[in-house]
């Protein structure tokens, strides 16, 4: 049996020195890509993710358009160099599933009825992955949708919680995800207080599940403050075209 890495030390600190309820450093920029109708870039720990939105645009294939609303499309994709072992660039089953859940996580925030017969395309490109890429991608994609000027009810913000060494902790990184005993990606709309994404694997007692759900909301609210600040800087203090950087101060 391999020696298991200790994920929490005697001082209660995690491998990267974080406390149980601490997020990794986060950097968010809005309006990063010139051609896209909306775009954002996020660094979430070692995750580096670019998100872009094109649309509302003409729907192809035509027969799949919806007469009363826009069709939302989403592609989550990982670069071949984003992980330890080179990843085949063709979309994997995992990426197809994640594309679906990201789309379904963002769709409730959008007023698609304002754009009948059109398509809105979201791209989430993971340039480097470090655990929690889908939820960081959602945070960035929601900013890209806002940057594209798509009418929306609320922002969507993502954050994962997990279980390591029998303890519920916020925001697992790659090492914790691999060695830990549970992971729960989560996204919600903070002002409407509605959950838009929830996945879970591992083993959670009913009580741990309740704690995890509570901690995920707290974490997501903190990411939301940074998401909101990035948008405010881009549109109200920086001026159009300039990118802004927001970092979490500890």
């Amino acid at each position: 049996m391999k020696e298991k890495k200790k994920l929490i030390d005697e001082n209660g600190l995690r491998l990267d020195g974080r406390k149980w309820d601490q997020l990794r450093p986060i950097k968010i920029e809005v309006g990063t890509l010139h051609n896209a109708d909306g775009s954002a870039y996020i660094e979430f720990g070692k995750n580096k993710i670019a998100a872009a939105v094109y649309g509302p645009k003409e729907m192809h294939p035509k027969h799949a358009l919806l007469p009363d609303r826009a069709v939302l499309k989403c592609r989550y994709h990982m670069a071949p160099f984003s992980v330890d072992e080179r990843k085949n660039p063709a979309p994997s089953r995992r990426e197809i599933e994640i594309s679906k859940v990201i789309r379904e996580a963002l769709q409730p925030s959008l007023i698609l009825e304002d754009y009948p017969r059109t398509a809105i395309q979201i791209y989430v490109e993971v340039l480097q992955s470090d655990g929690g890429s889908r939820v960081a991608g959602i945070t960035a994609a929601s900013l890209a949708l806002a940057d594209a000027g798509i009418n929306m009810r609320d922002m969507v913000v993502g954050c994962a919680v997990g279980k390591i060494e029998g303890k519920i902790v916020l925001d697992l990184d790659d090492a914790e995800d691999k060695e830990g005993s549970g992971d729960m990606p989560f996204a919600f709309m903070p002002n409407l207080n509605l959950v838009t994404l929830l996945q879970l694997d591992g083993l959670f007692t009913p009580d741990e599940f309740r704690q995890a759900l509570e901690l995920a909301q707290q974490g997501a609210r903190r990411v939301y403050e940074m998401q909101r600040e990035a948008l405010i800087k881009q549109y109200f203090s920086g001026g159009a075209g300039e990118t802004t950087v927001v970092e979490e101060g500890e």
């Binding site: 379904e104 959950v195 996945q199 009913p206 759900l213 909301q217």
Partner: peptide
């Protein structure tokens, strides 16, 4: 043992946190 070992929310709608519990 009544542990929750897998979960998936689906479809383009939402859940209030208390309904998840």
């Amino acid at each position: 043992e009544s542990n929750i070992c897998a979960g998936q929310k689906g479809e383009p709608g939402t859940f209030p946190p208390e309904q998840i519990l």
